[in-house]
Design a protein around this nucleic acid. Sequence first.
DNA 1: TCCATTAACGAACATCTGTCTGTTAACGAT
DNA 2: ATCGTTAACAGACAGATGTTCGTTAATGGA
Lengths: 195, 195
Amino acid sequence: MKTQNEHTDRRIKRSQRQLKQAFMELMREKGFPSITIQDITDRADVNRGTFYAHFPDKYALLEAAIREKFQRLLEAKLPSDAGWEQAHLRILIHTVLEHFKEMSGRCYPIDTVNPLFERAVQEELYTLLLHWLQQSRPDSKGWGFPVETLALMTSWAIFGAAADWSRGKSQFSTEQMTDHVMSVLTEGTIKLLND
Amino acid sequence: MKTQNEHTDRRIKRSQRQLKQAFMELMREKGFPSITIQDITDRADVNRGTFYAHFPDKYALLEAAIREKFQRLLEAKLPSDAGWEQAHLRILIHTVLEHFKEMSGRCYPIDTVNPLFERAVQEELYTLLLHWLQQSRPDSKGWGFPVETLALMTSWAIFGAAADWSRGKSQFSTEQMTDHVMSVLTEGTIKLLND
DNA sequence: TCCATTAACGAACATCTGTCTGTTAACGAT
DNA sequence: ATCGTTAACAGACAGATGTTCGTTAATGGA
C-alpha cells in the first residue's frame, strides 16, 4: 500500500477507494473479526481476486484505512510548522485521543478494533515526533540517549495511553486525559527520583 | 487460558503442555504465519478438535506461550519485594530487552514474531509497575495524574523501545539500550521544557 | 485514433478454519 | 473397585482463504 501519486492508473485508485470504503462501512455493521473478503468485495463491486492484488489480507486493509484517516486528522489539527513544544505536543495528544475515541465509536460495539492493529498510529506518531525533535533540537549531544529513542518511547507512551483510554469506560474526558498524559510526559517518571 | 491450579484434570494440563511445546518448536522451524492448526496438533499428538477446546485460535496460543515465558523470566530476575526504585526499574528494563532478544532469535528469521502479539508483555509490565507504584508511593495525591496512567505509559514506553530494538539490527548492546531507556524515563521528555 | 500495457474479471483449485456430531476412555471422588 | 463426569477422539461439514488460469476491456502514451 504505497502512497499514490496523481499519475497512477485510475482503476487502481478506484478499486482501492471502493475497498476501503466498503470495509469501513462493514466495520460499523459487523465488526472486524466477522468481516470476510467476500463481504468486502461484494459491497465494493470488485472481484475477490482483485482484493489480493492490492492487499495481502484484511489486516493490511485495516491498517491502510486507519493510517489514512489518522494522517488526515493530523493535517487538519496541527500547523505545518509544528515542533517539539508543549503547545504542539498537547494538540498532538488531544488529536490522538480524538482519533481513538472516534474509532471505537465508529467500529462495532465492545469488540472494538483490536488496538493491536492501531499500530499504524504509533508509527505515524513516531515519524512526526522524530521530525519535530530533529528540527527543533539539533543540540542533542550529551543527552545520554539518541533522539530516536526519545521519539520512540514517547510515541508508544501516547499511543498506549490513548488505546487503553478508549477501551475503558473513559472515566476521564478527552481534556482531562490530555492533561494527564501531558503531566506524565513532563513530570512523570521523574517522580522515581524524589525520595 | 486461565492459570492452572494443581487440581485440574491431568488431561487438560497434558494437552496444553503438548500444544505449547509443539507450537514453540514449530515457531523456530516455520515462523508464525505458516503454522497451521494441523501442524501443531500433529506434532503434539492431539486431536485437531481438542485444540479448539483450549484456545480459540493460534494467536491465543502464541499469547499464552509468550506470557508464560516472560513471567518465568521476571520471577527469576527480580526480587519478590521489588518496588518503584531506579535499581529495580533498571533490572526490569534489562529483562524485557533480554526477553525480546531471545524471542526474535528463537523464532523464525526475519519474519520475527510480529511484535503486535507481544502485547502480553506490555500487560504484564503494566500490572507489575502499577503494583510497585501502589506499594511504594501511596502519596500520589497532587500529582496531576493517576498512578494508573503513569504505570500505563511507562509500560508502553518500555515495551515499545524493546520491541523496536529487537527488530532493528540492534546497533546497541543490551546494556547500552538499558541505559538509554532509563535515561529517557528519568530525564527524557523534561527536555521539552528547557527553552 | 491507434496500440501496447495491464488492471479487473470469472472460474476453479487445494487447503485451512471453526464447528459439530456420537463414541471412547481417562479421570478423581466416593 | 465402582461410577458419574468429562476430556479426547475420529470423522464430517460448510464456509473462507489465498492462488492460479486464460479472457476482457479500460487506460494512458504515441
